[in-house]
Design a protein around this nucleic acid. Sequence first.
DNA 1: GTTTGACCTCAAGTCGACTTGAGTTCGTAG
DNA 2: CTACGAACTCAAGTCGACTTGAGGTCAAAC
Lengths: 145, 145
Amino acid sequence: MKLLDIGEVAARSGLAPSALRYYEEKGLIHAVTRHGLRRQYGAEVLQQLSIIALAKMAGFPLEEIARMFTPTGRPDLPRGDLHARAEEMQAQARQLAALADMVRHVADCPEPNHLDCEKFRALLRMATRAQQRASATPKPPKRQS
Amino acid sequence: MKLLDIGEVAARSGLAPSALRYYEEKGLIHAVTRHGLRRQYGAEVLQQLSIIALAKMAGFPLEEIARMFTPTGRPDLPRGDLHARAEEMQAQARQLAALADMVRHVADCPEPNHLDCEKFRALLRMATRAQQRASATPKPPKRQS
DNA sequence: GTTTGACCTCAAGTCGACTTGAGTTCGTAG
DNA sequence: CTACGAACTCAAGTCGACTTGAGGTCAAAC
């Protein structure tokens, strides 16, 4: 089995060596051995890093990603959590798109002073309500492992 | 003109008093006067805070939001920046929705071991490429003021 | 045999948006 | 008149995901 040293893994994965050491410290990846002081990684680490990249894109924190692998490094994805996260992402995507439309309207509004635009004022009321709701829920709804 | 003290503003806006002081420190809002040591805010601060909330939702950093007001506190929104931000938000929303679909697929995949699923492997290749592109562009594309 | 360059460890720093804590000052209700 | 409670200032802490820097190790190329 071919072993990769950290620079090689960094180059292939697009991550910095310091990031790889950090992931190791957090238990996301493991070197199979050392050559002197140097970490030697097995080829499977690249696949693990892809999964990690994907999970990061999906917004999972590293701590949670660490639990997506068995102690032997095999991926073991929490389907329930993924499903929940997918729903959240979709909701967030919708919100973001809606907000983008509003911002676009504000940008394109011909009124020299935005406060003279009724839609803008309605938007502000919405923003205030959103803020109040956010502060009323200091705890983000959490996924269970 | 009725003056509001910080607790009143906090209650109406849904922000903590400490956040309001922080905003003041960063130049986003200003108390019109002091009553002893206590800040006294004019009613217009509530509207300013709505605008700030909106801009935060749209992803603008506070530093940039600070420049969205004239020295007198009147909103003066950078239409060009808003337009650019709206495009970015829309793009991000699309990406997020696409990613949500992929995550949902992974969650629903019947294959006991995800690595046996061809779609999943394709997804991993995509994740790697995305990671590499991200590292190739350490500087985020920036808006000019 | 020595230099080089990649790697190592460990502690500390960074960023943004606040929060927290300690110690202090006031206006107002009783 | 005094006690209460709401505000005040300023420094330091928090969170997550890394990066940076100082000082040390070591295998391989010359």
